Amino acid sequence: MTPQTIEELLQDPVFRLKFLELLDRDPAFREEVRRKLLTDELLALPERVERLRLEIHKEFERVWKAIQENNRQIAALTERMERVEAQIATLAQQVQENSRQIAALTERMERVEAQIAALTEEVRDLRRTVGRMEERWGLAHENMAEDLMPRFLASAGRQVRRSAMVQFDGEADLVLEVEEADGRRVTWVVEVKGWVWGPRPFEQVLERIRDAVFRSWLQREGFPEPVIPVVFGLAIYAGAEAMAQKLGVGLYEARRGEVVAPPLPEP
């Protein structure tokens, strides 16, 4: 039999059948043929595919865990957002309530201010009325003081050089220019009252001599410094003498004359 080439054998159906049967029966031969037919890269492909499958599986697990963690964070953030929204709603409600209360308080304050303004005007009217009454009924007291004070002062060696009655805030004050026994001249401001009790008459004369408008009037009228505070009363009640001494104010009574000597500066 004439030898055949490989190509001729592969064209022979009997040879091809026997070759396939041999592949089925002989695993070693089959592996050898496979190695001859496949390249190293193709042979290594299943292993590479397996490694790739494992890597894909690991990456999928990592991504899945990341997705689960993201879901957990999203859930936590959603819960926090809901709490913040609830707090904002509560604060908005509180602000509305505060605004309502402020509006109500503002309205009440406006009413109170209006009432205060009305009362202030009533007090002013009352003061004007009282001032007119004191001026009307108290003028006799000032006239009596203007008549008696020079006598009381003369008994102590003092001389009244001139006198004036001046009205401020509806009240009349007796102002005397007095020459002391040593020749000095001073000004006595006399607060005249019908009845003297409590600290108010003494506080009034001290307020008067501290009043800038009143001191300006004294200066314009030529009354000399220093200015001496004195209270004159038709009747003096218990405690008035101690109060005069405490506040440093002279005290005279229509019946007795000098009760507390006025505080005179050193010469």
Rank of each mutant, 00 (worst) to 15 (best):
D169N: 14
G183C: 09
E177I: 03
L148Q: 12
V186H: 07
K193V: 05
W217V: 11
S155R: 15
R208W: 01
D169K: 14
P224Q: 03
R158L: 11
R161P: 01
R220N: 06
G198Q: 07
P201C: 08
G170R: 11
V230R: 01
D211W: 06
V189F: 00
V230Y: 01
R158V: 07
E225D: 13
A212F: 07
F152P: 11
M149L: 15
V192G: 05
I228F: 04
W197C: 04
G233S: 10
P150Y: 09
F214V: 13
L234F: 08
M165E: 11
R158I: 01
V190Q: 00
R162G: 12
D182Y: 09
Q204I: 04
R151I: 14
A145Q: 09
P199Y: 04
E225P: 05
F168N: 06
E171N: 10
F168A: 12
V166P: 02
P229N: 04
G194Y: 01
A164K: 15
Q159T: 15
R151M: 09
G222S: 08
E146S: 15
V166N: 03
D147K: 14
V230K: 02
D182K: 09
M149Q: 09
G183W: 11
V166R: 10
G198N: 05
A164Y: 09
P199S: 09
R184M: 10
A164L: 14
S163Q: 15
W188S: 02
P201F: 01
D182W: 12
D169Q: 13
F168G: 09
F202I: 07
E203T: 05
R161V: 14
L153D: 06
T187K: 06
L153N: 04
A156P: 04
Q204E: 13
G198W: 02
V160H: 04
R158A: 13
V231R: 00
G194H: 10
E203I: 06
A181Q: 12
R200H: 07
E203G: 04
K193D: 03
V189N: 00
T187I: 10
F152K: 10
R220L: 11
P201Y: 02
G194R: 14
L234D: 11
G233D: 01
S216H: 12
W195C: 02
I209T: 02
G198A: 07
L206C: 05
V190P: 00
V189C: 00
S163W: 05
R215Q: 13
E146W: 13
D173F: 09
E225I: 05
R161D: 13
A172L: 14
G157E: 14
V166T: 13
E179Q: 13
G170I: 12
E146K: 15
V190F: 00
A164C: 10
P150R: 10
Q167E: 15
F168V: 14
V189H: 00
P226W: 09
Q219N: 03
V230H: 03
V190Y: 02
D173Q: 14
P224I: 12
A145S: 12
W197M: 12
R210S: 11
G170Y: 08
A212R: 15
G198V: 04
